[in-house]
Computed example of a mutant assay.
Amino acid sequence: MSSPCDPQYAPAGDVGAALMAIDSRLKAIYDGKAGIDPEQQKLNDQFTASLSPEEADDVLDGACTLVFLFMQWLQMAYEDHGKDVIEHVVPSLVASMRMMPKSVRPEVIPTMAGLLVAAGTGLSPSLWRQQYGEWTRDEMNPLEATAVLLAEHINRITDDHDFATRMIADALSGADED
């Protein structure tokens, strides 16, 4: 029986824009920058301000698609080693989010954990979240942090700082060719 949260019913959104934002954050982490580069933040703010509400929703859906794709990749990787992705990924990401109180408010951590579990069980994170109403402003940074933490987890597993970004970029290139 199909779930109303099945990914086939979910919009993919603007995965490219979401991926650029995630890649930008990863590069800052790997370059050892303690904070956000003011110039980069200015560009991000300008980009965000230029989005219409529909375009902003597309980027939001794109971030959820990234969470789904990253969790699916991690699920396959962990299953190859006889491990459960939810058991091994969700607790460490929740612990990481708890150490980021300026970016991730404690009250939204359960929602982000729910997104991870939804994706890890094959459900669309955006459709799962939609059941509970509109996204809130307080959930935007945590959603981005969730996607960044997942990508960084993949990069750490593969010992390649660009693996997660390249994997999605390659998938997008392949989809464009079809």
Rank of each mutant, 00 (worst) to 15 (best):
D14T: 05
I36L: 15
L93D: 03
K33S: 08
K102D: 11
Q8Y: 08
N141C: 07
E39G: 06
T165C: 13
K102F: 04
E152S: 11
T158G: 10
D84T: 03
R156V: 02
D6A: 09
A147V: 15
G114C: 06
F68L: 12
P7T: 07
G174P: 03
T146F: 09
R129C: 01
A119H: 14
P101S: 00
E54H: 11
D14K: 00
L51S: 06
V148Y: 11
P4S: 00
W128M: 02
F47Q: 04
G62F: 04
D84A: 04
L74H: 05
A77V: 04
F68R: 13
E107G: 08
L116C: 10
K42T: 10
L123R: 15
A95D: 14
S2V: 10
Y9F: 14
Q8E: 11
M1H: 10
S173A: 12
V94I: 02
N141H: 12
L43Q: 11
I29W: 11
D14V: 02
D160F: 05
G16T: 06
I154S: 04
V148C: 12
G174I: 00
C64P: 03
P38C: 04
L43G: 07
Y78Q: 01
T158I: 13
Q41L: 13
I154C: 10
Q72M: 04
L43C: 02
S52T: 15
P7G: 03
G122T: 09
M20V: 13
S126D: 01
A18L: 03
L74G: 10
Q130Y: 01
N44T: 11
D14Q: 00
V67R: 14
D58C: 07
